[in-house]
Amino acid sequence: MSLLEIKNMSQNFGGLRALSEFSIRFERGELMALIGPNGAGKTTVFNLTSGFYKPTEGEILFKGQNTVGLKPHQVTGLGIARTFQNIRLWHDMTVLDNIRISQHHNLGYSLWDSLIRSGKYLGAEARIEKTAMEILEALDLLEYREELPKNLPYGIQRKVEIARALSIKPDLLLLDEPAAGLNSADVQELIRLIRWIHKEFDITIWMIEHQMAVVMTLCSRIKVIDFGKTIAEGTPEQIQNNPDVIKAYLGDENI
């Protein structure tokens, strides 16, 4: 059974067809990219996969379960985590608390437990704290645990967002333009980090990315969409030499 299988997924916004008959299948352990020009429908795909939108048509099967109609926190609970193109951290909470709060879907205690500080509450909070500290240590972020994200360099903020996604121990990690806004040194660090996460956490990764150096270095398979339609899928070499891709995306001097 595939980890993720999307079948003929389409999305309409009013009279606009943002995505048309999108299909893809993921096996466990893959590291794949979804690319295309701005406005091609890439983030729409991620929003549908993570439960932020309900597709107009089609199926989304994750570990064999149809997730269409589930809320984002329910999809997260099944094992899909994501980051966003524009970093979405709680900037007035510490880095540690950002990681801790990401596990809210799996608390396992009631409001009453929290009010009386029951054994269930104390045990769950200890587990959440342990997980958060382990993730921060694994990503070399422990020194920032009491810092507010808004006071940190952009590259570190991006790393914290990835750490927050990893803290739920997902089977599938969606990275939406992780290199956006990074300088060349930070991009090289990001490539190293993603490669390490893929291996160390034995996790499946699906990324949207405009920087071809990141995509071509990391991904074994690439899918390309344009105006909501799939125009190519294959290895980095096949994509680089595909005339439709060159015309629609790689040949655009502004990208």
Rank of each mutant, 00 (worst) to 15 (best):
G15L: 00
G15Q: 00
G15C: 00
L16D: 05
R17T: 12
R17W: 08
R17Y: 11
R17H: 15
A18T: 11
L19W: 10
L19D: 04
L19C: 01
S20R: 08
E21A: 10
E21Y: 13
F22E: 00
F22W: 10
F22L: 04
S23P: 11
S23L: 10
I24D: 00
R25N: 11
R25Q: 15
F26N: 00
F26H: 05
E27Y: 13
E27L: 13
R28P: 15
E30P: 14
E30M: 12
E30D: 07
E30N: 09
L31K: 12
L31I: 10
M32C: 07
A33L: 04
A33S: 09
L34A: 01
L34H: 08
L34S: 03
L34E: 02
L34P: 11
I35E: 00
I35D: 00
G36I: 06
G36V: 01
P37E: 05
P37S: 05
N38I: 08
N38P: 14
G39C: 09
A40T: 09
A40F: 08
G41T: 07
G41V: 04
K42V: 09
K42G: 06
K42C: 07
T43W: 06
T43Y: 08
T43K: 06
T43H: 07
T44V: 15
T44W: 09
V45D: 04
V45L: 02
F46G: 03
N47G: 02
N47I: 08
L48N: 11
L48F: 13
L48D: 03
L48P: 13
L48I: 15
T49W: 07
S50V: 12
S50L: 07
S50F: 13
G51N: 08
G51L: 11
F52S: 00
F52D: 00
F52W: 05
Y53P: 14
Y53R: 10
Y53N: 12
Y53D: 03
K54D: 12
K54S: 13
P55L: 04
P55Q: 04
T56M: 06
T56C: 07
T56F: 12
E57F: 12
E57P: 00
G58H: 01
G58V: 03
G58P: 07
G58M: 03
E59S: 13
E59L: 13
E59Y: 14
I60N: 00
I60W: 03
I60C: 01
L61W: 10
L61Y: 02
F62T: 06
F62Y: 12
F62C: 05
K63T: 14
K63S: 14
G64L: 03
G64Q: 01
Q65W: 04
Q65E: 14
Q65R: 13
T67E: 01
T67C: 04
T67I: 14
T67K: 02
V68D: 03
G69R: 08
